[in-house]
Amino acid sequence: MHIVRYRLEHDDTARIGVRSDGVLRALPAVPSMAALLRLPLADLRGALAAPGEVVEGAALLAPVDGGTEVWAAGVTYLRSREARMEESTEADIYGRVYDAARPELFFKSAAWRVVVDGDPVAIRADSGLDVPEPELALVVNALGEIVGYLVCNDMSSRSIEGENPLYLPQAKVYAGACALSAGIRPAWEVAGDDLPVAVRVTRDGVAVWSGTTSTARIKRPLAELVSYLFAADNFPDGAVLSTGTGLAPAMDFTLRPDDVVTITIDGVGELTNPVVMGKEHFAHLRP
């Protein structure tokens, strides 16, 4: 089962439903994903227990809305540590954060900026080295409970962050930089601590970079990442926390416009996005 946001043809109203075995059913009593994430885990499960009528011809939307924020963790895999040290003029910073007690956490996107499966993702025009970052994302309710999982593409400019670690927000937060899979896989249906992750970038129909890893290689427990996110802030509409990447190409690889990025996490979902350059492709995204 996946929890989804959708809209019907000729109707801009966003609705919530559950999709199982390719069949989408409405949840008319749930007004928004943010409302769902305000509930304790037990109540949230109860809200999904009796879906309504079958829905056909729906377009799936990004699985976040309202005041839900997307955050991300960095340098949680050994490969991520190595990649950051390769690209950076301040390599020792990434070695230290990998071994530190406190994880690296950063804001990634407001709900209204998130793109979904099939939408384009972007590279910056002022960056010379850009990569996708395939990641497991945790869906967390307002009480800090992990209620589900998503596939995340945490798009990143390696050249901007590598020039100076203080440029991280510019390397990570821009139009088209955050893509999430369309459906939230409930946490009670799959364990998130040992899931295969795969990425493939195709160019003119030919794979130019691919890789596989497992969430078992994340150094920190998933609940620990959430505890640091919630330690000094409130998330009344819940949050999505992407858990870092264990896959990074060599320094001679960069994304180009018209590439296609496909990320698969077994048991969670698949996310496919074409690559574009520039913010003009995302002018339609509004709060």
Rank of each mutant, 00 (worst) to 15 (best):
A26H: 01
K279W: 06
R256T: 11
L136I: 14
V240N: 06
C152D: 06
T13C: 11
P120R: 01
E135L: 09
V70M: 04
D258R: 01
T215C: 12
W209A: 04
G267Q: 11
D154E: 14
L247I: 15
Y174E: 06
G269K: 03
T202L: 03
A232M: 12
T245H: 00
E53G: 07
V206A: 12
V55I: 13
I93W: 02
G17Y: 00
L41S: 13
G269W: 11
I218C: 12
G162P: 06
A111M: 08
F107M: 09
D193S: 14
T13Q: 12
R84S: 15
R220K: 10
M277S: 12
A111E: 03
I265P: 01
D237W: 05
A142V: 03
P132A: 04
P40R: 13
E270S: 14
G238V: 04
A73I: 07
S156M: 10
A29E: 08
V199D: 01
V208K: 01
G176H: 06
L61E: 06
R81G: 06
M155W: 00
V197Y: 08
T68W: 00
V206H: 13
V55T: 05
V23P: 02
P120F: 00
G278F: 01
P28A: 02
Y167R: 05
A14H: 10
P134I: 00
P196G: 06
A59R: 13
G162I: 10
G162T: 09
G52A: 05
